[in-house]
Structures are given as structure tokens and as C-alpha cells.
Nucleic acid binder design. Structure first.
Lengths: 243, 243
DNA sequence: TCAAAAGTGTTCAAAATACACCCATGT
DNA sequence: ACATGGGTGTATTTTGAACACTTTTGA
């Protein structure tokens, strides 16, 4: 019989992290190549693993991300739990579990988290069973292990919806950014084009994006004003009154 | 070692259901009194229990609700997973677990679901370890077992937000309803008052609330036209353009 | 005839949309 | 001097908000 507060891996519960990154150009997701790869030609996965019995789910997500990719100090947000008993069917997934897990046959449910970060502010360094950690543009992602494609897709949909209510766009930008960069983030996440003048008006009217006394440097055109996000002035999203 | 596809209870994963009901007057939540109550004077809980290893989370939520309250055929929606290792601390919770669980010390995470139903269309009949199943107005809910108060509160917040994007208000009403009834649902969930004329205009403009050739009967005032929700015309919520 | 809720329109203010040119910088 | 992206304003349409009286029915 297992005990509550032991530092033991729980064979039935894992966490998976969808880390989305931005490099001024496109949205990428952080994937790991599993070690051992078994028969596979480099099977890719979201960074995830079993939880310990004495940590919260949030702590587990942070720890697992750190252990597999070296990335720490980012805000991870739970978005859905996946628990289809049939989520492990691929032969090479089963082989991999046999190689690394104490209870490879156990039914595992996984609590999924996402985060948005700026790619150039983090340097993934694979460890534990991650042979490699790479950024892959989200529309170039091929088949992932387990049900990780499904998890990634749901994360992308959720991020789109949360863009209106949470200040997540700013997590994809450096602390000081131009409005053009911010607009690009919105356009890429929403997969649409926005009018520059209307976008600026709307963003500035919210009051939580503040101009600095500072301009871009070394660009071959008129330098843009830099702006900052002011958390203290953020009160719950772009105001949307429904009634 | 446990096997994947056996019909066995998973000691580490449970589901909990927040069933919100409406009776034309206020929002109530369906709670059960646990059997055995132990030393307790009627400890109340959300209907929830451990999952089996061969069912999906959604199936587990449905089954558990059915087993404890007899309610079936309602749409349950997953909204959050709670997994604080300290979520079981109250003495009487621990005693109860010892009385009914094969692994009372196991660390349990719980996947929470909510649903909205019309109270007069369901007749809860307690069974299994539910000694009783009762509707309690949400603002009269006292201390619940485990972390069920936290789960209930998060459900209420989530329902508020989803009211704008999902057709959940209609689940609280009979198939045919008046616009005044619908307005009351919005007012109660949002905890605010709405202008009758503006509400009607806005709802009718969406196109997914259709008038019928039918009126209320037997009311001591001008009978209201009945309306229906048309799922096929619902395309993702009250239109909100953000840019 | 009264009580009770249904149903209906207009005005004003705010927000969304569409749209085109000049500006500052580096090369 | 030219290429590049930065930055700005206005007119029109759409939406939100505030507000009060007449209608139909059963008792």
C-alpha cells in the first residue's frame, strides 16, 4: 500500500507542458526527443512526466519542465486534463514506457499546462530522459507521442480564447516592446490581420500599455517608441460589455 | 503491479461533479450526505468518487453521478483538476476515507466537472455511499468535505465566464421558455440586473433564440411568447469583436 | 376594474471599422 | 535619394445604455 506523503512517483498521474515560444516571427512549441528512442526515428514529445505524491500539480509541472529542459521561473497555467485509457496505443510508446517506468502498464491521466515565453530569453538544455529539446513551429509539428498532438491543439485553441482576457501576449515579448511587435503577436495567435491604427488606439485606450521615453536603436527606419505592460493597471482584460 | 485494462478503481484519481440547478428562482447545487457519516453531523459533499482504470474521465464523471444521485443523461463539462496533496486534512474526512476506501492514505487528485440543469426535470435518488442527495442554494452552502468549497467556487466563476461563449443558460430552462425566464438566468448567474428592452433586442439579434407560435397558458397576466434555443444557429457565442 | 407581467422605440454616447499619407532613420 | 517601417485623423456605421408607457390576461 502506498503512503501519502512519501516522495514517491505516482504511477497514475502525470503532467505535460505546452511551452509556446515566440521569436518575432512565428509561434513555436518546445518539444523533447525521448531517450531511449527505442526503435523510433526520433519520437517527439511535450515535456512531461509522472508527479510525486508530495507535490502539488503546479509544482510538478514546474519541476518536470526544469528536469527535462532546464527552463524554470515561468508561469505555467493548467488548462485541461486528459485521461482517455486508450491514449497509449502506439507500439513505440508502450516500448518506451516499459524501458523507463516502474509501472509501464499503469493507466495514466495527465494534467496539461501551457506557458508562453520569449524564445531568446531561455536556453533549453535537455536532461533526464530528454535527449534533445527543440523549438518547432506549431504548424510544422508532425506526429507526437501518446496524445500529445491533441494536447497541443487544445492548448492553441485555449490560448486564442485567453488572449482577450489575460495579459498573455506580453509574455511573448521582451519587457520593452514596440506596438508593431505586440500587433504581430495578436495577429499570429489569432491568425488574422489587424488594422494598425485601430489596433494602436484600442491598445492604448486600455491604459495598461504605457509608452516609455525610449526608442528603438539601430534600425534602418524611423525608430519606434518602446512600451511596457503595466500589470497594476490590468484589471481583467480588454473590456467587453455584453449587456 | 496494477494492470491497465482491468475494471479496477484507481486509488489516485477521482472525479467530482458540481451540478448546478435552477428552479426559476435561484441557483442551487446538488450535494450528498455521506454514508457513513462517522462522528459528523451530516457532512456534505459534491457527488464524486474514484475512477475505474478502463473508463474515460468523462465516463467516470457520468457514472459516479449516476451511482450517487441517480441522475443521468446530462452533459458534464470538465473545468479544472485539483491536486493539492494537502487537500485532505480534516479529521472526519480521513476517518471517512478509512471506512470506505481500499487505499485511504493514497494521494488523490480530482478532476472536476460541472453541469447546469433544471431542477424540476430531475429527481435525485441517493444510493451507494450517498445517504441523501439535496439541492442547496449556492449562497447557503456551508463547509463541505475535502476541498469541495474551493471546487464549487471555481465552478461558479467559470460558469459566469462561459455564459458569454457557450449556450449554457438554456440548460437551466425548459425546452420552451419565455424571454423573462432567460433574462432571470442571466441576472442570477451574473449577479446583476439587466434592462428588459436591451436584453430582448440583444438576444433576438443573435438569431439562435427563436419565437414559437405558442404562448404561456394559465397565467394571471398577458401570456408571454415561448421561445426555443436553436443549436444549429449557434456559432460560438454572443458575437464579441475585439479588434 | 384591477393586478401583473408582456411587449415595444427612440435618443444619445461610445466603440468599431475603413481608409492614406507624411516622418525619421540608416544605407 | 531611397527604402523601410513608424506614426497619425476622420468619417461612417454599429453597438450599448438609459428610459416609460400600452397591452393582454385571469381573478
Amino acid at each position: 500500500m502506498r503512503e501519502t506523503s512519501n516522495h514517491e512517483l505516482n504511477p497514475n498521474v502525470s503532467v505535460d507542458n505546452v511551452i509556446l515560444g515566440f521569436d518575432d516571427d512565428e509561434i513555436k512549441v518546445l518539444l523533447i526527443e525521448r531517450q531511449p528512442a527505442g526503435s523510433s526515428n526520433g519520437s517527439l514529445a511535450l515535456p512531461g512526466n509522472l508527479i510525486y505524491d508530495d507535490e502539488t500539480l503546479d509544482q510538478a509541472a514546474k519541476r518536470v519542465l526544469m528536469e527535462l529542459t532546464g527552463i524554470s521561473d515561468i508561469y505555467l497555467q493548467q488548462f485541461h486534463t486528459f485521461g482517455d485509457p486508450g491514449r497509449i496505443t502506439k507500439k513505440q510508446d508502450i516500448e518506451w514506457l516499459k524501458a523507463v517506468r516502474a509501472h509501464p502498464e499503469a493507466r495514466v491521466i495527465t494534467v496539461a499546462y501551457f506557458s508562453l515565453i520569449r524564445i531568446d530569453e531561455y536556453e533549453p538544455t535537455p536532461s533526464a530522459f530528454a535527449k534533445n529539446a527543440i523549438w518547432v513551429p506549431v504548424d510544422e509539428v508532425k506526429s507526437l507521442v501518446f496524445d500529445h498532438n491533441e494536447i497541443l491543439n487544445k492548448a492553441l485553441v485555449d490560448v486564442q480564447q485567453k488572449l482577450y482576457h489575460q495579459p498573455i501576449a506580453f509574455k511573448l515579448l521582451p519587457e520593452k516592446f514596440t506596438l508593431a511587435q505586440l500587433q504581430r503577436v495578436y495577429e499570429i495567435i489569432l491568425q488574422t490581420e489587424l488594422d494598425k491604427r485601430n489596433f494602436r488606439r484600442k491598445i492604448l485606450k486600455t491604459g495598461f500599455v504605457l509608452p516609455l521615453d525610449e526608442k528603438q536603436q539601430g534600425v534602418a527606419h524611423k525608430p519606434a517608441t518602446l512600451y511596457m505592460f503595466d500589470q497594476s493597471k490590468f484589471n481583467g482584460g480588454l473590456q467587453v460589455s455584453h449587456f
